[in-house]
Amino acid sequence: MTATLVRRATVDDAPAIAHVHLQSWRETYGPVLPADVLAGLDLDARTARWQAILDEGRSTIHVAVAGGEVVGFASAGDRPDEGGPAPRELEGLYVLARHHGTGEAARLLAEAVGHGPAYLWVWRNNARAIAFYAKHGFVPDGAEDTHTVSGHPIPAIRMVRT
């Protein structure tokens, strides 16, 4: 595997982030979402959304680049006034399946939220992700929610690191 660079994302990264986002969903959410929903995810719409997110600057976004290709990303934001259990929320962390176990996700996590208090939401049945976050000090705090994608519910749990 090629050495990976983790850096702040720019608006020029929006298409690559959108690709990783959708591919990661296809690799991860097959047990939850119907195949036609996953196949129908719109890359152009997701790219436009990531361009808007990067333009807004409300979130901090980092990318992992290996061999000139974006292979993962993390997005996080400060939430001091929104009543969350910690001041920083990990909004998303995705790494292509072929890069699982390389340490790229850990590096992205560290860049996104540091080593201090933070929280995140994770699909309740995503044992791999839950174990990864637990390894990095996050524990479920009992909060649950349901995120809906194309009309399909994805039950989620909140994990917190204090």
Rank of each mutant, 00 (worst) to 15 (best):
L43T: 13
Y119I: 00
T4L: 07
G116A: 11
G101W: 09
Q23T: 14
A112D: 06
P117D: 12
G114P: 10
A16Y: 03
A74C: 08
E89S: 14
H99L: 13
A48V: 02
H62E: 06
V32R: 00
T47N: 09
G92L: 07
Y29L: 11
P15V: 12
L108V: 00
P15D: 06
A16Q: 12
G114R: 05
A129N: 04
F73I: 00
W123P: 00
E111G: 03
V20P: 05
E56K: 03
V113N: 07
G40V: 00
G84F: 04
G92H: 05
S75N: 13
R79G: 01
H115E: 15
G83H: 04
A76I: 13
R98G: 14
A74R: 10
L54T: 05
P85Q: 04
T4G: 11
L54Q: 02
A105S: 10
D81F: 08
R26K: 14
G67W: 11
A118S: 15
A97W: 02
F132H: 07
A48N: 08
P34A: 13
G57S: 09
H99T: 04
V70T: 15
R124P: 02
E82R: 13
R88C: 07
D78Y: 04
V122C: 03
V95N: 07
P34E: 10
L22P: 06
G114W: 06
D12T: 10
L5C: 08
F73H: 07
A129C: 10
T10V: 04
H136G: 11
L120C: 06
T60A: 13
D81P: 05
E69P: 09
A9P: 02
L108S: 02
A52L: 05
P117H: 01
E56L: 08
A110G: 02
V20K: 07
A86D: 05
E111H: 08
D13P: 10
V20L: 04
K135Y: 01
R7S: 09
G92Q: 10
V113K: 12
H21D: 06
L54H: 03
E69S: 14
L93H: 06
G103H: 01
D36L: 05
A39P: 03
D36R: 14
A14I: 03
G57Q: 09
L41T: 09
H99P: 06
Y119A: 00
A52T: 08
R107Q: 05
G116N: 11
A74G: 02
V65H: 06
A131M: 05
V70E: 06
G67P: 08
F132M: 07
P80Y: 11
H115S: 15
R8K: 14
A48F: 04
A64Y: 03
L33V: 07
A45L: 09
V65F: 05
H115A: 15
D12R: 12
P34L: 12
L38T: 12
A76K: 00
H21W: 01
R98M: 09
E69L: 11
D42F: 13
R26D: 06
G103M: 12
A105D: 01
D13F: 06
D44M: 06
L38M: 11
R8G: 04
H62G: 01
A35Q: 15
L38I: 14
R8E: 14
L96M: 09
A35E: 15
G40F: 14
H136I: 09
